[in-house]
Amino acid sequence: MSENQKQTRPAFHGSDIEQIEKYYGIPKETIIKFGANVNPLGLSASVRKAMAEHLDIITSYPDRDYKTLRQAIAGYCNTDINYVVTGNGSTELISLLITQRNARHALVIGPTYSEYERELSLTGGRISNYNLEESQEFRIDLRHLEYALDDDVDFLILCNPNNPTSSALTCDELDSLVKRCKERKIFVMIDETYVEFAPSIDEISAVPLTARYDNLMIIRGVSKFFAAPGLRLGYGITSNRAFLDNLKQRQNPWSLNSLGAFAGEIMLKDRDYISRTRELILSERRKCLTVLEDYRYAKAYPAYGNFILVKILKEGITSFDVFDHAIRQGMMIRDCSSFSGLSGEYIRFCIMMPKDNERLLHCLGELLA
């Protein structure tokens, strides 16, 4: 494909469902959203029922300290309530964290979520990228990373599991990294948006490290695992008391509404929903990876998130070609050409319900098997 063709073809984000509807003339209600990375079970029935029965809660302001919500988060994550801060989605907390750190030189592990760099660019500091290597199946080489930590780097950002690669570091590996950063006075932000989809949450979550290191903040939310992106509930975990106090002083009061705070308490305690979600994702992810192993012109990578990154190996077939082929059959996947630092032709799709996954794999197989 020529450079002019690449520049004129449409580029859709995973949530650009309205633009896709307009461009292809496909009713958005009929499109299966394999590009959004949201739990296919949808909102928990018990949460929906509880919210409907407590709508009057919006007539009152929420508790300014969100104490009961923070208690629920602390219990869910097995951490100290005093380490927990809530926000209007993880996006608000990422913005507040980056603004307050005001880094001289931030290093971002990529390819990854573009919002990190957008927020960093507003602070005026220097931004560097450490791009994961395909030859390493997009896992971080910790020894090599140390060489990238220049003397003036004071802020490190990584997503674990990472989006779009679905790769992850273990808690032990993160321990080594955060310890090294502590010695060099580098603050670390770890975005754990997808950690609950991992085969073993305990194996890769860095939450236990917050009790030992005050140069670390974990960011999470309920958009993906609990299928509640519109709720705008995010939370952060850090033991850095001074930093937390400073962050809260600059955060808008009542940044999370009463209904969102109430729903958060309910969903984090819904063990049946949590169990069903993990059973579905872990089982279907294994099936999808097994099928993809037999595709001659596709390479799938080990996946810890609820999505799988696939490299296209067939000459003349681009990521947009595969996206276009799928959307014309009513399935929206992610064309990864917009991810900075991801060289080559890649697509990403999230795990949906079994029949939908079978349909997509058949569709991909028409081009790549």
Rank of each mutant, 00 (worst) to 15 (best):
S2C: 09
N4C: 06
Q5C: 05
Q7W: 02
S15E: 13
D16Y: 09
I20Y: 12
I20F: 01
I26H: 08
I31L: 14
I31E: 06
K33W: 01
G35Q: 04
L43F: 04
S46M: 11
D56H: 09
T59K: 14
P62S: 06
D63N: 10
R64V: 11
I81G: 01
Y83W: 07
V85C: 14
G89S: 12
I98N: 10
I98Q: 11
Q100P: 03
R101T: 11
R104W: 08
V108L: 13
Y113S: 12
E117D: 15
E119D: 12
T123Y: 03
Y130N: 05
F138P: 08
A148H: 10
D150Y: 15
F155L: 15
I157D: 07
N162K: 10
S166Y: 02
S167I: 10
D175I: 07
S176P: 05
V178K: 03
K182W: 08
I186H: 05
P199S: 01
S205T: 15
Y213F: 15
N215Y: 03
I218Y: 02
S223G: 05
F226R: 04
A228T: 10
R232F: 09
G234K: 08
T238I: 08
A242P: 00
L244G: 01
D245C: 06
S255D: 14
S258V: 02
G260M: 02
G260T: 11
E265K: 11
K269W: 05
D270N: 05
D270Y: 00
R271D: 14
S275M: 09
S275P: 00
R278M: 07
L282N: 14
L282P: 02
K287S: 12
K287Q: 11
K287A: 13
A300Y: 01
Y304N: 15
L309W: 04
I312F: 00
L313Q: 10
K314N: 03
G316C: 04
G316E: 02
T318K: 01
H325L: 04
A326Q: 07
M332P: 10
M332I: 13
C336L: 06
F339H: 05
F339G: 09
G341T: 03
S343C: 13
G344F: 01
E345I: 01
F349P: 01
I351G: 01
K355P: 02
C363Y: 00
